[in-house]
Computed example of a mutant assay.
Amino acid sequence: MNQEIINRLGVITDEEREIINGRTEIDLERYTQGKELVIDSKKMLEHGKMIRIRPHTRFVHFPRHKHNYIEVIYMCKGETTHIIDGEEVVLKTGELLFLNQHADQEILPAGEDDIAVNFIILPEFFDTAFEMMGEEENLLRDFLVGSLCFDPRYASFLHFQVADALPIQNLVENMVWTLLNDQPNKRSINQVTMGLLFLQLMHYTDKISHTKEGFEQKLIFQVLKFIDENYKEGELTELAISLNYNIYWLSRAIKKLTGRTYKELLQIKRLNKASFLLLNTGLSVTNISIAVGYDNTSYFHRIFRSYYSMSPKEYREKNKTTGL
């Protein structure tokens, strides 16, 4: 990250000065209005604002807490240790941590050279990002769905180890710079930038090292990740073997936890990928059918029509005409 930004974020804050001068605990009045330690967006955001950044408070143990907003933490320099839903997560330089309202978080004390920036974000800020991601099923979209509908079945946090992903680093730096310098139209700029960030992160599901602890959440995560990475040829048998589960038990568990069968989840993934290729490439419908895993073009036409209520050709012509 740009050194000027790191220098600005690394300045000792008034709160940190109090800690250095002897305060041994955080000042709860800075963070919450209630008795329970739920960090309140009304304390963290100005009225009418949907996003803000603040440096992570160092030198003190931050006790177990939740948020009534979505928090994104970017590690500019050094590292911080978080205990999330009982699981230790070490956030290192260049990495991102997304936490939704379900996450139970505790943070160990950080040193002066451990500089992180916290994005405090209201769920409605992600409307633009959600639209930019489209309807394609993926882990990040599911995380947002869980956040927006307060559904605890979905992952409460995502830890992206993306220090070597230059486009992601640039996008995060752009958002920090825009907010630090209070640029005009910063909400629109950052909503679009967040959407671009999500589109980039969709390509790094293999860089997610942790999710919410718990068998059901872990299983959903594993199934969706497998489909994300193997939608063309991934079979339920292969997934069952890789997870060491009985295929019939796994099939019933997927239906129970997601409301859809494995075949339905796979088909949705393939069709959403096909719609993306129809609108963003010049590939023929036959080649797109093969690319997403359907060798039988007639079958692909049939299921595409049943899902989108039009043929692939009609879908391409209509959406390009309307500019969707």
Rank of each mutant, 00 (worst) to 15 (best):
R8K: 05
R8L: 05
V11S: 02
D14I: 03
D14M: 05
R23F: 11
I26V: 14
L28E: 12
E36Y: 06
E36K: 03
L37H: 02
D40I: 00
S41P: 03
M44I: 09
M44D: 03
E46H: 14
H47S: 14
G48A: 08
K49C: 06
R58E: 01
V60C: 05
R64V: 13
R64C: 10
E71W: 11
K77F: 04
E88H: 03
L91M: 02
K92T: 12
T93I: 02
G94H: 00
G94F: 01
E95G: 08
Q101K: 15
E112T: 10
D114N: 15
I115T: 08
I115W: 10
A116L: 04
I120S: 03
I121Q: 01
P123F: 02
A129C: 02
F130S: 06
G134D: 07
E137G: 06
R141C: 09
V145W: 14
G146F: 01
A163C: 07
D164M: 09
E173M: 07
L179M: 15
D182S: 07
V192M: 12
V192P: 05
F198Q: 04
F198I: 02
L201I: 04
K207T: 06
I208E: 00
H210C: 03
F215K: 12
Q217N: 15
L219W: 11
E233V: 13
E233K: 14
E235D: 09
Y248C: 07
W249T: 11
L250K: 07
S251A: 13
A253W: 05
G259R: 09
G259V: 08
E264N: 11
L265F: 12
F276R: 11
L283G: 08
L283Q: 14
I290V: 10
Y294E: 14
D295G: 06
T297Y: 09
R302C: 09
I303H: 02
F304I: 00
S309D: 15
M310T: 01
E314H: 08
E314S: 13
L324R: 11
